[in-house]
């Protein structure tokens, strides 16, 4: 069975838990206390995840320590053509772009959310300014997507793992004092993600 080393309040971890739920996969959750114990920085956890990052997915001999890798693996292994368009090079490229975008969101909106709530050191103003720039770009993309009849970050009739990877950082952005009022297309997209069959919440996120 898949094992997930994770912290309940981790947005990256939530992306993986959400995707596992959408795929209907069972898994074993192994809680790691990020705050306040910083268990992820302990020697035991570093042996598993040298970057000391959460979450970590273990499936047999395979150990994955980044959200992009974990979601890509789960999509390719369990998602079928709906989640992994194997023959569509352009779409795979777009999904890769979307995963990289989620990493930028993690480093800005995600970081300022954690630093704020848990009182960790960070240049919050710089992180918020960069997050705002990203959100403006995403909002424009989603607005024109809607105009073309597309509901998701990448063109096409179905959500991709890019949506799943970006959703947690955006839906939780207000915890880091990044209001979403200026991104109406993003706010509609959040509703669409919430309505995906199998959607699950995490603390701080409401359902549909």
């Amino acid at each position: 069975m898949i094992a997930l080393h994770d912290y309940d309040l981790s947005a990256e971890g939530y992306a993986v838990r959400l995707f596992l739920a959408l795929l209907g996969l069972d898994y074993r959750l192994l809680p790691v206390e990020f705050y306040p114990a910083r268990e992820h920085e302990g020697e035991e956890f570093r042996a598993l995840s040298p970057m000391a990052s959460l979450p970590v997915l273990v499936d047999g001999d395979l150990v994955l320590t980044e959200v992009a890798g974990i979601l890509s693996y789960l999509a390719a292994r369990h998602g079928g053509a709906d989640w992994y368009p194997a023959g569509d090079a352009a779409q795979l490229g777009r999904i890769g772009d979307g995963l990289a975008l989620s990493a930028r969101l993690a480093a800005t909106a995600g970081a300022v959310r954690l630093a704020d709530g848990m009182m960790l050191p960070l240049d919050g103003a710089a992180a918020r300014a960069e997050a705002k720039r990203l959100l403006r770009v995403i909002d424009e993309r989603l607005w024109f997507g809607e105009a073309a009849g597309d509901d998701w970050l990448c063109p096409g009739p179905r959500p991709s793992i890019a949506d799943i990877a970006c959703f947690p950082h955006i839906v939780l952005a207000e915890e880091g004092d990044i209001p979403l009022i200026d991104y109406p297309a993003i706010r509609r997209w959040l509703d669409r993600v919430r309505r995906l069959p199998g959607f699950v919440v995490m603390p701080g996120v409401f359902g549909a």
Binding site: E146, L180, I181, P184, R187, R188, D191
Partner: peptide, 11 residues
Amino acid sequence: RDLAGRHVFQA
């Protein structure tokens, strides 16, 4: 168009 079905818009 902003007022999508079953959505609450913030202004």
